Amino acid sequence: MKSILTSTATVALLTAPAMADGVNYNRFSYDATRLQLEEGSDSVDFDSDLLQGSLEYTVGQIVLSGDLARGVVSTDPETIETTTFEYAFGAGFLVTPEILVGVGATGIDIELDDGSTTLDADANGAEFFGQYRTSQFGAGINVSQFDLDEDNVTTAVFGEVSPVPEATLAGFLQDDSEFDGTTYYGTGSFDVAPFQANGFFLGNSDTDVTLFGFGYSYGFTPAFRAQVDYASYAGDDAPDLYSVTIGGAYEFTEGFSADLNVGYVDGSDVEIDEVTVFTFALTYEFGDRQRLDNSIEQRLEDDIATGAASALTLSF
């Protein structure tokens, strides 16, 4: 969990010492955000594209996992492009139906190109993870060390609880020895057909700024849902900004869906005429992850990659 941008899955029901051999979870997704800032006749575009692929596979009591992500953020007309590539591979052992421990490799590469100069930085490391998980509760720890540096360690504790089948609460606390403060994240969802609601918050204890958001959707048919999202900041040092999007999601077949949203950004700290938001997501997903840390990190990515929050994280 080096990056809070890496890496939504439901609770895995562990009812045997080892799951049946085969794929537990598979996901491929594409998320795009387009932001246009207009001031008079001038405009600036911010574009974000994120590709993700995830696979989890069980062989006996061994749980294998792999996650890849590539993100590109660019601006126009003054072209500045930032490309990020992240990977994580892990192997875990189911000690009991509820206890999973394992090790893995993780890394990130970031490249910044402004048309005349290219800057490149990367970090690679190893991780240890352990968790206890049932159908209603889960908790665990993930410790990562990067570039064989004993002073470059990231520690995250995470948890999830389902007080009733229709509701899930989850989150993590993450401490990085290279940075001040502790990153905190919480998320919750409630699903009673045809209604769905969700909310989240994300921040760092070193700054009095917290990003938060919530959404609501209604299923008009088994395949189509209308949805609205709101995101803003809280805290004494927070900018006065908020974003609202409205759109819909359509499920072509089980596990394969598309989301389309449009909206705007406003607030007293918006010093231009208009900020327009467009987001699009295409997702293929089936199964349930057994690794809880990966599941919660995917929930974070889903919370901020599309909809209202993506506009604020992209350029403000």
Rank of each mutant, 00 (worst) to 15 (best):
A156G: 10
D273Y: 12
Y185Q: 03
I4S: 13
Q290T: 11
G181A: 04
T276N: 14
A105C: 06
T313L: 12
F278H: 07
Y242S: 14
D288V: 10
V209H: 01
L51D: 05
G40T: 11
V101I: 13
V73F: 07
F137W: 06
V73S: 10
T182E: 06
A126R: 04
Y25G: 07
F195W: 10
E297L: 14
T118Y: 03
I108V: 03
D67I: 06
G140C: 10
I246M: 15
T253G: 02
T82I: 14
G107H: 02
T96I: 12
S162T: 15
S295R: 15
E39F: 05
V164T: 15
R133C: 01
D67E: 11
P163V: 08
E274W: 08
D191N: 07
D76Y: 13
P194T: 10
V161K: 03
D120M: 04
N204H: 13
L211T: 01
A139F: 00
F256M: 14
N142A: 00
F200M: 09
T182K: 02
G40D: 11
F316C: 07
E38K: 13
L292H: 08
S162Y: 02
L94H: 03
G92I: 01
V73Y: 08
S189K: 14
N152C: 03
V44R: 05
S205V: 10
F316M: 07
L94S: 00
A234T: 12
T313I: 15
S48M: 13
T118L: 11
Y242E: 14
Q131V: 13
E271K: 13
V11T: 14
L169G: 05
G287Q: 14
Q131C: 05
L37N: 14
V275W: 04
G248A: 08
A308K: 09
G215I: 09
Y216A: 13
A223I: 05
Y242A: 09
E297Q: 15
D175E: 05
D273L: 13
R70S: 06
Y184D: 04
E254H: 06
L241E: 08
N261Q: 12
I62A: 08
S7N: 15
D31F: 04
D266L: 02
D273A: 15
Y233C: 10
